[in-house]
Design a protein around this nucleic acid. Structure first.
Lengths: 197, 197
DNA sequence: CCTCGAATGTAGGCGTCGCCAACAATGCTG
DNA sequence: CAGCATTGTTGGCGACGCCTACATTCGAGG
């Protein structure tokens, strides 16, 4: 059987996104081509244009999906019942895990190509992603487990340290194993500081 | 006068790198094209191939130059006479300044495309760049100004936090002004931790 | 149920890109 | 100054993103 497909694919948009995410994982962002995706899915080279106005639009959709998945992952990893340090450690471990398993995707999510419109959806997704960390720190602050400073500043230090490690992994300066092994130390140093006490 | 150039350019390699860095700053990495660079410099579209085996080779050279410039910048900003906190703050400010002024270049430097050969020169350049931070922390440790932990771990926390902030700027989540204004707080929190003391 | 516009997919073409091979001009070294 | 290696030119190949014109299918209003 010639495996003929009906003239209309059915859900080309989703199929393209799925194929794109697979390619992204297997061969990196540079290997992403609309024409190649179309071939993989079995449609003509111009078909993707019906669902994504241009390549950047597809990348944006990919990034958006990434944020949503990351937000879910982080949310699931965060247990409000835990004391601050293990709670934060779990969150950190989840973020680094995502960064390891989705290096190219994460890089794409951080590529500031979509500032012009800000796209709203994207902003909301980012917000939701950051939410887990914000919640953990806000709770801790409310409970007096951490100092009483500008929450923005605390979020920044913590988030920056986390993402910095993720970037180092992605850059190849740090093996995934080393990063995961160092999570506890990382969180500990963040909470207790580098100065002797 | 037709401004004729001798058949041989003289220093095409350097001219290409300079043009590339300009384009990188003005229009971003995506706008980098060997043919366009050749046009800007006034040579034929295949001439760059004599100096860079392929596009990636040019990007590598660009990244290498970036590391060297960054290392110099950091080294100049680091004054061993200062006490730890201001010394680290100055270093952080210098790094963020570089990240702000060379966002696209920094992104390129962190793109792990050149792992295969590791290129040696590149590794050395990275080493030199990280050197400033390592030195500051090692000195502080020797003087008893910070705790006595695995230096690698301390370098990681500090470097990650720094680079994380740089990434946030690059992603547009943080304005350069806000980042620079927050440097002191950042370093303070790193040194003193988030827990009350 | 039929019709007709909207949505979706196809075919082909344009300009650009990276890379390659063949050739020309130049510089350098013996 | 002869001959070879270096550097630049020309032209071409295949792939890409994007565009336009056209074909097929779907679905809503008569």
């Amino acid at each position: 059987m010639p495996e003929t497909r009906p003239y209309h694919h059915g859900d080309l948009r989703a199929a393209l996104l799925a194929a794109a995410e697979r390619t992204l994982r297997d061969k990196g962002a540079a290997a992403l081509s609309l024409r190649e995706l179309a071939r993989e899915v079995g449609v003509s080279h111009a078909a993707p244009g019906r669902h994504f106005k241009d390549k950047q639009a597809l990348l944006n959709a990919l990034a958006l999906a990434g944020y949503e998945r990351l937000a879910q992952t982080l949310d699931a990893a965060e247990d409000p019942a835990l004391p601050l340090e293990p709670r934060l450690t779990a969150l950190a471990r989840a973020y680094l895990g995502f960064a390891i398993d989705n290096a190219a995707l994460l890089e794409l999510m951080y590529a500031r190509k979509h500032e012009p419109d800000a796209s709203e959806q994207m902003a909301a997704a980012v917000e939701a992603t950051v939410g887990s960390l914000v919640r953990v720190l806000a709770d801790a602050q409310r409970r007096g487990e951490i100092i009483d400073g500008d929450p923005e500043e605390l979020n920044l230090v913590t988030g920056a340290a986390l993402h910095g490690v993720a970037a180092f992994i992605s850059a190849g300066w740090l093996t995934p194993e080393a990063a995961l092994a160092g999570v506890e130390g990382l969180v500990h140093h963040l909470l207790h500081g580098l100065k002797p006490r």
